[in-house]
Design a binder for these strands. Sequence first.
DNA 1: ATGCGGACCTGTTAGC
DNA 2: TGCTAACAGGTCCGCA
Length: 271
Amino acid sequence: MPELPEVETTCRGIAPHLVGQRIERLVINNASLRWPVPETLKKLLPDQTIRSVTRRAKYLLIAIDSGTLIVHLGMSGSLRLAPPDEARLKHDHVELYLDNSLCLRYCDPRRFGSWLWTTDDPEQHSLLINLGPEPLGKQFSAKYLFTKLQNRKQAIKTLIMDSHLVVGVGNIYANEALFMAGIHPQRSGSSVTLEECTLLVSQIKKILTHAIRRGGTTLRNFVGGDGKPGYFAQELMVYGRGGEACQRCQATLQEIRLGQRTTVFCPICQH
DNA sequence: ATGCGGACCTGTTAGC
DNA sequence: TGCTAACAGGTCCGCA
């Protein structure tokens, strides 16, 4: 799925086309996403104007006059702007028709994503209220991470992927950041020093920023809101390279499972 | 509170 | 070539 850079790219791609537009209608082709898409949206949304499109963690927040759509792309979701008469794809489950003769289509083969609605401050929604800080914000610092790691026995990789600790670090970037910081993914949280936290936090920020600049990693066929594909995986140092030579020391990269996620690391460079 | 495993679903790929 | 099993970018929930 979309990791944070893909969601950010989508947000930036679609926002200029959505903000200020009046909604004509919402079509739900398949309401069975992670949670059912509320049928009431079909009556609620028409004639309302989109005020803003923002991102919190991997959630896209589409603010309308009377509330906010909370959209998550799950593992396989994508949003794209299409001409309203364009044939829809097999997995285009939700379609938002706008005034400017564009249609926002939500495609999600695995249906792990969600379209939710709230009339309150979206930050207070149960899915958002307990989220950790944004990885690119200044709240996510070495000191913050170090404090959070105290007395934690879980593997550092699992911990940096925990959205209660920090949001937006998915499997790909967790692997990459740990490699760049020279930290073994299986180390317990409490064994990571403040100095290592400094390295790790700066690598997480660097890698995510870089990926956003490149328009998202795009594994298979992710397409940003503007229809441009992101860059491919050739810039990744470890993810997807188990068994290959480490680009830094030539040792064979190891692949293991950690918390049911594929984990790749260099047994020499990462301690 | 923390940690772990299972669950949600379809599509693609690796292996026999 | 065809069938089957394993695996894929996420993250919530329930249980120990």
